[in-house]
């Protein structure tokens, strides 16, 4: 049985007085693609922010390769090999396309991904390497955001709302590229609103509802009914 790379143990998260996550238990095994689904406000993004260190949690609530990382800062988490492709892409507007990629590489982890391999994956980015990142289309921006995360050669990559706000044809392209991205021995967590897309690329799926895990199962065996019950909370 493959090793566990990431574990959440009773993860709670708060924004001031508002509690967004209630005791989430979850694990990601080495090399797998895990999908997280759930409606708006279910706590998916909060979970991503917690894992990546943008939200601080209790040390033991998040373990990565056996070490407690719950209270680490985001830059420390990044150095350990976890990268986040944030919701809404969030490129650096003052940086050119290539600089956005380079800054991802500044983490200094060696591996398969560098400017060359990345431009092989997304040739359009090489063409547009010197333009400001703000002048790209939404799909190209998503490529930069993915590339920026890959440049740090992470062992675990988190995609938050990977297809939100993109045209269907672009989403198709991005999903077509995903296997090539993940095949390099990486584990991945994909947060996605589009359930069938999420199920098609993942081996297992978790559904969040109002800050709690409402369903956990293998992507190819969970039924439609189970999902809609977990998703909407309807019995």
């Amino acid at each position: 049985m493959p090793d566990t790379i990431l574990e959440l143990h009773g993860l709670d998260a708060h924004y001031g007085d508002f509690q967004a996550l209630y005791g989430i238990d979850l694990h990601v095994t080495e090399g797998e693609v895990l999908a997280i689904i759930g409606s708006n406000g279910a706590g998916k993004t909060t979970m991503m922010r917690s894992i990546s260190g943008l939200l601080s949690n209790r040390r033991d609530q998040i373990r990565y390769r056996g070490g407690a990382i719950g209270s680490l800062r985001a830059d420390e988490v990044a150095l350990k090999g976890i990268a986040l492709v944030p919701e809404g892409r969030q490129l650096f507007p003052s940086l050119s396309v290539e600089e956005n990629l380079l800054i991802g590489g500044q983490v200094g982890r060696q591996g398969h991904w560098d400017l060359k391999t990345l431009y092989d994956l997304f040739p359009i980015l090489e063409e547009r390497r010197n333009v400001p990142s703000t002048s790209l289309s939404g799909g190209q921006q998503q490529m930069v955001a993915i590339g920026r995360a890959l440049m740090s050669n992470p062992d675990l990559i988190l995609f938050d709302e990977i297809s939100l706000g993109l045209a269907p044809v672009i989403i198709k392209d991005i999903y077509a590229a995903l296997p090539g991205i993940i095949s390099q021995g990486m584990s991945a967590v994909i947060v996605e609103q589009d359930i069938s897309k999420a199920l098609s690329v993942s081996s297992r799926v978790y559904c969040l509802q109002e800050g709690r895990v409402s369903l956990e199962g293998a992507s190819d065996t969970v039924s439609r009914e189970e999902i809609s019950r977990a998703y909407f909370g309807i019995d």
Partner: peptide, 24 residues
């Protein structure tokens, strides 16, 4: 320079810059 890149990145968005392993 990489340092200047970090300066601009942090100036743009401190959170996302942290995700790049930059200790602001």
């Amino acid at each position: 320079t990489p340092l200047g890149r970090s300066f601009r990145a942090v100036s743009d968005n401190q959170d996302i810059a942290q995700l790049m392993g930059i200790n602001r």
